[in-house]
Write a protein that binds this DNA or RNA. Sequence first.
DNA 1: TCCCTTATTATACGTCTGTTCAGTTATATG
DNA 2: CATATAACTGAACAGACGTATAATAAGGGA
Lengths: 210, 210
Amino acid sequence: MPAPVNAQRKYRRLAPSERRQSLIEAALDCLARLGPHGAGVREICDRAGVSPGLLRHHFDGKDELIIEAYRALTREFHQNLHGVLFDPAESAAQKLQAFINTYFSSEVTRDERVGSYISYWTLARTDRKIQRIQRSAYRRLRRLLAPVLNRLAKDRGVRIDAEQVAISLIALLDGFWLELCVDPKHFSRAKTSAICWKWLEAFLRGSRPR
Amino acid sequence: MPAPVNAQRKYRRLAPSERRQSLIEAALDCLARLGPHGAGVREICDRAGVSPGLLRHHFDGKDELIIEAYRALTREFHQNLHGVLFDPAESAAQKLQAFINTYFSSEVTRDERVGSYISYWTLARTDRKIQRIQRSAYRRLRRLLAPVLNRLAKDRGVRIDAEQVAISLIALLDGFWLELCVDPKHFSRAKTSAICWKWLEAFLRGSRPR
DNA sequence: TCCCTTATTATACGTCTGTTCAGTTATATG
DNA sequence: CATATAACTGAACAGACGTATAATAAGGGA
């Protein structure tokens, strides 16, 4: 009576792309829970259920994994928000409300992700490659946002500098997002979204007519 | 013909309080330039012009130094802003404009400091003691700001939830402050201050009358 | 079925980390 | 000027780090 086949296997082989994805996921998880200091090779590989030597078989080194994980993170972030802003059925106001909601949604800002964003904010100060990815992601977000803001201003009959308003709105969102990190209990995500929308509307009301 | 006395001395003795201050300064400097990863004991002590063993003579360990440095940083930050908001000669509007200017001033946000703030944002995610200091500093800032905002709302004849506006204003400021880190060239400090003030005024104009 | 490829493991290596400690020397005090 | 105190040095330590490498075994193709 032989033991089940699965019990005899010491490990499962994965296609390189799958294993890389699994290691990226583990890296983001460690970065979020333990910060850059805690995201060591052994910790990451433990999390991925894999021996430490395997990292170098799929990546040039730990640094490349961390960078690749950031690429994946910004891609995920951008896709979430892109989908919301390009729904042709919605008005500009509806799009922007959905945008703000998504920014604070559990999908984007969920606890297992939010810590990794902050880790990368710190890493970007010293790592040029991470800095390049961050700036590019920031520029893409602005370019995504500006035309929709322009459209909203048109609807409201006011004249704005869309680029500048995009920058300000992102600043407001990022600022609240930071505060949610300090004290998650102090504000609900829904309430935070509502406040941001209120600020945006107040700003538009205060802008000069076309 | 003896060499000058100073050239024979191998080191200079300092009072504990002075040496502690010097090490704290060096720690903040390393944290800002190199991030948490680069702020090692040897690096910090090099920066302070001192041998690595000395750190433990004045602090319980590296962790305590980092925490003590954060205490000094938040104290400095708070004192700068406290002075601005408690000038009795100024109106609420003038106080708040000065507050915003100071927030982005080279004193508070200067390059050799700004990086250390971000480092601590990351460290606060995993270190309870740093988290406690951060939350307390955040609460103090809100309590400093709320009464002045209330006064401004009175002057403008509108009714606001001062606590909530304080939270929002801090979010806006912190958000811009983060963006200045990503791309310092994109916005001047003066322009950033002006935009924040404009947002605050627009919000007040949009609030309901008393 | 066997075999070949290569994903994976386990161990070992050198470097860097925070810390220890015995010895050294600046400086206040009598 | 002599002496005691303690600020300070510098080398050595154990452990954690990222990495290199030889051995192992999973799993598809002949």
